[in-house]
Design a protein around this nucleic acid. Structure first.
Lengths: 111, 111
DNA sequence: ATTATATTTCTATATTTCTCGAAATATGGA
DNA sequence: TCCATATTTCGAGAAATATAGAAATATAAT
């Protein structure tokens, strides 16, 4: 992933509403969810929701397809993967990004 | 990593200058580099540089220590680790974030 | 003490992002 | 065709961020 798209993805996720929407759609999986359903969940004007969906889509973190009158949004896992790849490669490696320091270990440290 | 600090870290990195500075300091490692040296590399007014260093520091992505009249900045690897952890846990898992798609594999894919 | 170096803070301005009502577009059904 | 539903685009104001010159702070050297 190049720097421009990295910045775009970071900026898209660096907003509470959008991060929440994205997380929701990650859980929803490839099936996704229609804009209306998302709007009902995260209560806000539909124009505001639409703005955030657009931002996420521009950053290629979401994809959308039409189903009747509904637009179904779904997470684009390739992009989040690429972002993770970039961060791991450029912002960790070299100086080793292993659990160098603390890291509370809240869960079972899966994988 | 909780949501607030996640947003803070994402926002801090979602800016070309700051991402470049952070990448530079990741490579520099724990030794870090003085503000002046960074300013010489990324040509910009020192007040602008200072603003960005502060943003990165507030997001806990950088740490600083004084050495004589210089302030040495260094990457905080714990924070970038935690960010990666958050993204992996909340924005990938569930629906599997394995190399689902492309992923050019430029390097030797260490670790 | 005085002066020089290193860097930050202050202040103002420019730019971008966010929010949301109103109007527009797209699709499906009667 | 006309109406209802689903959602986006437009337009404008509010809030947050970015840029940078000038002044302030901190340390070191003379």
């Amino acid at each position: 992933m190049e720097i421009k798209s990295t910045i775009a993805a970071l900026a898209a996720l660096a907003q509470e509403t959008r991060l929440a929407i994205f997380r929701y759609l990650v859980v929803a999986g490839p099936v996704g969810a229609p804009a209306g359903k998302i709007g009902a969940l995260f209560k806000m004007p539909l124009s505001t929701l639409s703005f955030h969906l657009k931002e996420l889509k521009i950053a290629r973190l979401l994809e959308s397809r039409r189903d009747g009158r509904s637009l179904i949004y779904a997470a684009n896992f390739a992009t989040i993967n690429q972002l993770l790849g970039y961060l791991t490669e450029h912002c960790c490696a070299g100086s080793a990004c292993a659990p160098a320091v603390s890291q509370p270990s809240r869960k079972g440290a899966a994988r």
